[in-house]
Structures are given as structure tokens and as C-alpha cells.
Design a protein around this nucleic acid. Structure first.
Lengths: 229, 229
DNA sequence: CGGCTGATTGAGCTATGTCAAGGGCAGTGG
DNA sequence: CCACTGCCCTTGACATAGCTCAATCAGCCG
């Protein structure tokens, strides 16, 4: 994978990015202060219980945000893709991270220093509002996840996760997560995830090349995912 | 239960309340616009999928915020006690409620009209910051809940829930939730919750008078709750 | 070629859900 | 004051989804 030197303009470009509400000068300031680095697949960006020093913005690659559960299993809370911010909650609360972030692909990730972030928060109301929206969305998805994990069978959760992954990463059309990460995402173990994936394959809902999964019957998966609503 | 006519001063009094960062005039304005009503146990305050008209503030009583899961089981996302706000997320996002709120005790609940809420949000930075803190805390607790439900056995989750309930409702020292609500809180079914509660009773961790639960060995429960971390 | 990482598959086991049948207590109405 | 009714709570018996453990396989890289 080739990694270009990132600038915040790139992220501003992505329509989903929060930086779209920043002025050119603000972006320029960010650029000056911001520190982009490269993370190899598997490398941690930050760790649960450490203190945040700034806000991370994924420029290229993919990052999983995980929390350690009982018996050491890891629950994936969300997966951040280019343009996504990571670690803002702990930064806002000025508390230790309650989760870890780990690159699951070779990634380029920028660090916006805490001071810059706070300045933006203070000076740019739209930015502040945007962060608030992000927080609200995160609550929504967390609450949905709670309800799913509590009552929806693994089969339904995997179907749902595949659909979600597919819709978020439209560009690539292939889901390349490790089976173990997929399991962590829906709160089950590797083996169970694998079994269900092969069921889906046998039912012609998905195709598998090498490790990566391609959805070929979206409707079917949707039906399975909502079977129990 | 006797319900007095509420004023926002009451909520302002509770140190946890967000209104403590409001000026006396702001409080006075709220009082004028705010509309307090009484809800009988079991009565809905608002329903999933309806549009928010304002912010609810629990003055007396207890309210559960629930989401319907697969097969119609209800997951309790949180329980709001006097001084707590309910329904701010959907209000901020201007979206339909993603959860319902139901009184689980006879309650007195005030409705702050949407316009008032937004005005406060716009004019009082401390209030805005406070809401943001609330959102962050909610994410934290939701993410913890996800991880717990995914990997911690019911026994541990019930112990945890009892401890949490106990610490939030210090004044009453007794947990009076229905077994079914307790089950909904930790994502299991009534029968399982009941069985585990009787185990706890047999192990002298809790006492039961009538339906209500009193913790008599906090350390023991903590140990069970963290057995699997 | 050997070693490593991840994917698979099989065989059991167990926690937890489901179904069904009481039991107790509180409020209501005669 | 008693019987009735409607909540909850409780317990037992049983079924099964999903977890654990263990063995094997397949691709990949040095």
C-alpha cells in the first residue's frame, strides 16, 4: 500500500468529514500543528486506560475501536474509515481512554493536538455542533447494538454486520475483516462466526474469494437480519 | 405518593442537575414555559418512533428508557431518577425517538418545550457543555453495556446491575424494580433473573423483603461482577 | 522447505432460553 | 370481612444456541 503525505484537505474533501465546516485558515492551522503517522496492520493507535493527547483522524486505512471484555475477549465498538475521527469522547471528557484503537489495515492517521481541537471547539460553533451530532449518532448505534446483542441471535447479527460493513465501505465492495474481528464486532467467537459465514455461502447469500466476503444477495441478508424484529 | 407542584428550582437543587449552570432568570423562564405532569406507574412518557416535542426532566419518580428488541423483548437502556433528563438526544438530532420512556413508579415529569431548550443551548455555553458531557457519559455507559452483554455471564451482569442501582438510588437503599425490568436491564429473561437473585439470596449477598432487594454484601457482589474481567 | 497466521470442522458441554404450573399478596367489590 | 382477580414471583423440566477444546488445513513469506 502506498501512503501519501496527508493534509487535512483530504479529509475535508470527504463529504462526511467534520472538517468540511472549517474555514481554509482553520484547515491551514490544523495542517501546521497536525502530525500524521503511519501505522502497520495490528499496531495500536492508543490503548485503553491511557491519557489522550489529541484527536485522531484516519486518513487512509481502517481502525478498530475495541474494548476488552470478560475473559479477555475483545468487543469491537466501531470501525473507523478514512475521514473518521477517533478518540474525541475521551478528549472531551478529559479522561483516560475507555477503549483501544488498533489499525486493522496499514493506515495513515493524523493526530490533532488537544489544544488545537479545543480551540476549534471554542471558536467554531458549527464544528462544535458537528461533534455533538457525532456523539448522538454514536449513542444511537451503541444502543442499537446493545439491543441486538441482547436479543438477536448471532445469525441475525452477522447478517446485519455484513450489510453495515458493505454500506460503509462502498468503494471496495469486499469485506476483508478477519473472521476473528468479525466475531468481535458482533460479540461472538471466531468459530461461530465462521460457521455462520459458511451457512451464508451455502445459501448463496455471499461469495468468498480468499478471505474476503462479497454480498450477492442483499435482500436475503436483510431478511435474516430483521427476522426477529 | 404525594406529588408536589414542581418547579425547576427543585431540579436545580439536585447537585447533579444540569440546571445548576443556569442563571436565576433562565430558571424563571423555564418555569414559565415548562409544563409538569403526573404519570402513573406503567404509563408511557414518549414512544419509540414519535417526534420529540421537548425535553423531559424527571422531578419525582423513576422512568425507564427502553428499546424493543427481537421477538418483542424490551431492553432497558437506562433508568432516570429525579433530576435526570430524558429525551435530549432525539431532540438534538431532531429525529424520531429511538426508544420509549415509561414511568416505572408514579412520577412527576416536566416538559421543557423544544424552543426553550434550544434557546438555552444557544445562549448558555455551560449548559451546552453540560449536555455534551451527558452525551459522552451515555456513550461510555452504553459501550460498557455492550461489552458486558456480549461477554459477561448473566450472573455477573445482575450483580453489576444491583450495585449500580444501589449506588444511584442511595436514598432508598432498596431496589424495587420488577424482576422483569431487572431482566430487561441486563438483557435476559425474567426466569433467569429470578433464579440468580435467589442464588444471591442463598449466598447471603442480598436480602429480600417482599419484592425489594437490599444488598448486604457489596464486596461479594463486586467480586462476582468482576470475576470475568 | 519450514513456520506462521488465519480459516475450518468436529465433538461435546453448558449457560440460558422456553414452556408450564403453581403460589402469594394487594386491591376491589359484594 | 371474605372471595375474586390480576399482578408478580417462583420453580421445575426440557431444549438448544452458542461456547470450548482440539485437530487439520490452506495460503504466504522468508
Amino acid at each position: 500500500m502506498k501512503l501519501t503525505q496527508s493534509t487535512c484537505k483530504i479529509c475535508k474533501g470527504s463529504e462526511s468529514s467534520l472538517f468540511s465546516c472549517c474555514t481554509p485558515e482553520e484547515i491551514e492551522n490544523l495542517n501546521l500543528a497536525t502530525n500524521c503517522s503511519f501505522y502497520k496492520k495490528g499496531q495500536p493507535v492508543f490503548q485503553e486506560d491511557s491519557m489522550p493527547v489529541g484527536l485522531y483522524c484516519v486518513s487512509e486505512g481502517l481502525v478498530k475501536v475495541t474494548k476488552l471484555g470478560s475473559n479477555g475477549k475483545e468487543q469491537i465498538l466501531r470501525i473507523a474509515k478514512p475521514g473518521d475521527l477517533v478518540g474525541y469522547k475521551s478528549l472531551i471528557m478529559s479522561m483516560r481512554y475507555k477503549a483501544s484503537a488498533i489499525a486493522i489495515e496499514d493506515s495513515s492517521i493524523c493526530l490533532i493536538p488537544k489544544s488545537q481541537f479545543q480551540e476549534l471547539l471554542n471558536s467554531n460553533r458549527a464544528f462544535y455542533d458537528g461533534i455533538m451530532q457525532l456523539l448522538c449518532e454514536e449513542i444511537d448505534s451503541a444502543e442499537t447494538k446493545i439491543t441486538d446483542i441482547a436479543y438477536k441471535p448471532v445469525r441475525g447479527r452477522i447478517a446485519e454486520a455484513l450489510l453495515l460493513l458493505n454500506s460503509s465501505f462502498v468503494d471496495k465492495e469486499q469485506i476483508t475483516l478477519t473472521r476473528e474481528d468479525l466475531a468481535g464486532l458482533v460479540g461472538t467467537v471466531k468459530e461461530t462466526a465462521i460457521r455462520i459465514i459458511s451457512e451464508f455461502k451455502n445459501e448463496n447469500l455471499i461469495e468468498i474469494n480468499k478471505r474476503s466476503i462479497k454480498i450477492i444477495n442483499e435482500q436475503g441478508l436483510k431478511k435474516i437480519s430483521h427476522l426477529y424484529d
